[in-house]
Design a binder for these strands. Sequence first.
DNA 1: CAACTGCAAACTGTCAACAGTTCACAGAGA
DNA 2: TCTCTGTGAACTGTTGACAGTTTGCAGTTG
Lengths: 246, 246
Amino acid sequence: MSESDQSRVLPRNNTYAQATESVLREMILDGSIGPGQRLNEVTLASSLGISRGPLREAIQRLTSEGLLTVISHRGAFVRTFSRDEIVELYELRAALELHAVRLVCARASDAELEDLDALLSDTESRMRESTGHTYPQELDFHLRLVLLAGNQALMRSALEVHRQLSLARSMSGQRPTRARAAVVEHAELVAVLRARDLERATALMIRHLDHSMASAIAVLGLPGDEDAPTTRPDERRGVDGAVAPD
Amino acid sequence: MSESDQSRVLPRNNTYAQATESVLREMILDGSIGPGQRLNEVTLASSLGISRGPLREAIQRLTSEGLLTVISHRGAFVRTFSRDEIVELYELRAALELHAVRLVCARASDAELEDLDALLSDTESRMRESTGHTYPQELDFHLRLVLLAGNQALMRSALEVHRQLSLARSMSGQRPTRARAAVVEHAELVAVLRARDLERATALMIRHLDHSMASAIAVLGLPGDEDAPTTRPDERRGVDGAVAPD
DNA sequence: CAACTGCAAACTGTCAACAGTTCACAGAGA
DNA sequence: TCTCTGTGAACTGTTGACAGTTTGCAGTTG
């Protein structure tokens, strides 16, 4: 057996069900299907050129990932998110990414942080020239940060949360307006990380996520608190549970 | 329509695929199937009284949950865990539960914390009388704590990690020997939580998880670091990335 | 005796058809 | 006109059969 023949050693990945999972996920995340929309199994299967078996298996996987909701005998729907669910996702994201910051501060090499910094200024300059086409699906800054933490389980969870938030954002047709501010905050974060200042890095990450969450909720507008939309308007808690000082 | 007829309002949960998912998960977690073991689809399906379709859907779900591993054309296997994977899971668990501690400190009512405390001393006394039959699948203390954080997304992730760690532990036939010490540490944690001392609560949780991880790895024994089992024996990092002082 | 080749059994991947449920609409009755 | 009921189309849930792959074993060859 030749050395270059890798098809035997690493798990082959060529079943319709697996391929369908990826394709479907893309269709959901790029808006081809749209939140709340129902997946018609026979239509979708024939349009993908497969039968309903593999399609249903893919649907189960994506349901576990939180991108679909299935109701018995009614079908699978692209998931929608309430305001509260988005807040919950941001809190979960904070849990994961704040821990990632701790791990990165303790483990990442100076070279890795330098790479992250370089990639950031690259993004910045590309942003200045381009007229706002949302930069291609290159791995998001936050996910790169989590990647540097060197923990695959953590990475998997973070990826899942990011996908859900990405879907949630797609519920509004609007484009992100906070991209520029975000890049600045990312740069600040990397700077203190390179100085191995865990305390300030944590504080910056909390602030950054709070801003991001506020923006996401604002752009989505509405669903609001179900029970008390106006009774206690000032007590907005941040991703770490503390009441924002404002 | 009568008021007591709830079957119409909440999503009906009666498909073979969904039921099979629960049954299979139980079989995996209680050791009926055992880590590394292969799931024969035709045997398992007929023993469950269903066909392979719903079974395969359940397998996909449990694979997403990290309890199974499927290899194309070879089948689904109950997952096994390397030493490194267990460390990663404990780090992820730390991310989730440390954040839960923050949220609980900020949000949980005194009454809720009192309930947690009561439940704890209840467990303690039951432990003293019983001769070590692992107390029934009552919701683990840590999961109750996460529940108090009031975040379903966080709870779901924590539950998934706990299930994986539960499976990992089952790789050794041995019973947990650290149960008594754990209960004491739980009590300490609740005490400082009731005092709303976030800093000490965090520190206690980190210590507790470090102990738990050490115990889990010790009881599992072996796989060890692949590359350097003895070259740098002292540099053992804890769940928060810091090198334990010890 | 060791290693390679070819075959057959066992199993997974996929499909098409059947069974049961949901939903929308037409028609009857108040 | 509005509400209720029944019916049928559309769709999901499930099944059994077929196709393709893997794996172990027997036979062969060096």
